[in-house]
């Protein structure tokens, strides 16, 4: 839902900045806290210039203390603030996982108090040798935490719209921004208010022959694969971008599979017990009658994410691997 404002082309990175900027302008309860986010602007410069406009009270550099960042953001949320905590890299959230798992996400269930908190974390592989500690895609960790919403935007418009929805949500929401897409992907973004409701997938590309279910930068890769197959193989692929991992849009996925009869689930996290396993299991359980072929998973390996480009490429699914999987599936 947008207020009919003009569309401009923004990068994913600019779209994130715009969502934060507009939220800060609109609501004095919104503030930012994290490591190196003020004068330095964050390691990805998402908050560059914010401290000059909004001041050090609302753009707060913290000590290196992920547990205290998430815990303190939770406390502020309990007394009427709308904190947005930045975790420098999603990998580092392991240091702050305890409050998120045990405290923040259980509060509403246990005693009915809303916790309007957003955790932003740049996530995913960059295809740039970032290595085991700056490349992880930990959405499945968070999908196992009842009470926590998990968002993974794959387009600039969604980067703005989903983050805006997350900031307005009365629950803790973790937004796993795709650092691979920050400056690589541009697209139309509404200039004014733009809210994309959490929990609704998008058909990023309609198609007849097979469904790809993906999220984050793998949705981007899936669209590339779909273009390759349309141009070279005459295969018409539908790409369903999940957009939100929790809650996830079962209906949209099952509806797409009902149209195509074939499904590949693509995710860059480790294959075993990744969120794609949940999606594949749901299709098998609830969409079995619609299937003309087994559901296929295509995912990262069950290894740490290696640094060298040769190894990293061997770890990650890419558009060619997705296209190959689709060719095999359509030929099944």
């Amino acid at each position: 839902m947008s207020t009919g404002s003009a569309m401009r082309t923004l990068t994913y990175h600019e779209a994130v900045r715009e969502a934060l900027w507009q939220a800060m302008e609109a609501d004095p309860a919104v503030f930012l806290m994290g490591e190196d986010i003020a004068a330095y602007g964050g390691v990805y410069k998402v908050t560059a210039g914010f401290v000059d406009r909004f001041g050090a009270d609302r753009v707060i550099d913290t000590p290196i203390a992920e547990n205290a960042i998430i815990g303190a953001a939770t406390g502020a949320a309990l007394v009427g603030m709308r904190p947005i905590a930045e975790i420098q890299f999603a990998d580092f959230i392991a240091c702050g996982l305890d409050p998120l798992v045990n405290m923040t996400s259980t509060i509403h269930y246990r005693w009915g108090q809303p916790v309007p908190l957003v955790v932003r974390a740049p996530a995913g592989a960059t295809w740039a040798s970032a290595g085991p500690f700056h490349s992880q895609s930990p959405e499945a960790w968070f999908a196992q935490i009842p009470g926590l919403k998990v968002v993974m935007p794959a387009t600039p418009a969604d980067a703005k719209g989903l983050l805006t929805a997350a900031i307005r949500d009365p629950n803790p929401v973790i937004v796993l921004e795709q650092k691979y897409l920050y400056r690589r992907l541009s697209g139309p973004v509404p200039e004014g208010e733009h809210v994309v409701p959490l929990g609704r997938a998008a058909v990023a590309r309609p198609g007849r022959d097979a469904t790809v279910v993906a999220w984050g930068s793998m949705a981007f890769k899936a669209l590339e694969a779909a273009r390759m197959l349309a141009d070279g193989d005459g295969i018409d692929v539908e790409v369903v971008d999940l957009r939100t991992i929790v809650p996830w849009d079962r209906d949209a996925v099952l509806a797409s599979v009902a149209r195509t009869g074939r499904a590949v689930v693509v995710y860059e996290a480790h294959r075993t017990a990744g969120f794609g396993a949940e999606v594949a299991a749901t299709i098998a359980e609830d969409g079995f009658a619609d299937l003309d072929a087994p559901v296929v998973r295509l995912a990262g390996l069950d290894t740490p994410i290696p640094a060298h480009p040769v190894l990293e490429a061997a770890y990650l699914p890419d558009e060619h691997a997705i296209a190959d999987a689709l060719r095999r599936l359509v030929a099944y």
Binding site: I60, G71, T74, L78, V79, P99, N102
Partner: peptide
């Protein structure tokens, strides 16, 4: 875990 939360409450104040 109550310690960081209390710090955040105080930060809001």
């Amino acid at each position: 875990d109550s310690l960081p939360v209390a710090v955040g409450v105080a930060l809001a104040f």
